[in-house]
């Protein structure tokens, strides 16, 4: 995941720096990568953006479940490490559900998901007092389509780093 995110960022940077250039071929991609890195401003390790870009701010859930998947636990282990290294930051974990449930049940389900994330982070050394939770139920989908490819992205818990920290 991290590699993909990084290379996407490079491509975006290239596009932004040289709008007149035509599309590049695979053969000179190494050079492009080099050029892009020079043009990029590095994201500071202690900034909230670092967590979003390099670790991933969210984990996804199975249908009607608040159990953490293996992939989710890996992301959260990295989040916990970052939070231990950046003790100045407070976070809010937002729990969300897809549209395939009733509104009030989904609020409760979102709360369960944010609590799953919260307790995992606490187990992995993050102070409980640094973690707030909120549930949005199905009120704030990430993606608007009515198919599984959107619903699976909407069943999520997002770690929001408070900017004041």
């Amino acid at each position: 995941m991290r590699l993909v995110a990084l290379s996407l960022a490079c491509l975006v940077a290239v596009a932004a720096c040289s709008p007149n250039e035509t599309a590049t071929t695979d053969s000179d991609s190494a050079e492009i990568g080099q050029a892009a890195l020079e043009g990029i401003e590095a994201t500071p390790f202690n900034s909230p953006e670092y967590l979003v870009q390099n670790i991933g701010d969210r984990v996804l859930f199975e249908l009607d479940s608040s159990a953490l998947t293996g992939e989710a636990e890996e992301t959260l282990l990295d989040q916990a490490a970052w939070l231990r290294d950046n003790p100045q930051h407070m976070i809010t974990v937002e729990g969300h559900a897809d549209e395939r449930g009733t509104r009030e049940y989904n609020l409760a389900l979102g709360a369960r998901r944010s609590e799953s994330v919260r307790s995992f982070l606490i187990q992995n050394g993050v102070q409980a007092s640094r973690i707030g939770t909120v549930s949005y139920g199905k009120e704030r989908p990430e993606l608007p389509c009515s198919f599984e490819q959107c619903w699976s992205q909407n069943r999520r818990a997002v770690t929001v780093v408070e900017s004041g920290g």
Binding site: A108, R112, R118
Partner: peptide, 9 residues
């Protein structure tokens, strides 16, 4: 009403 404490409603 419903109240949620520590994830339990």
């Amino acid at each position: 009403i419903s109240r949620t404490r520590s994830g339990n409603t």
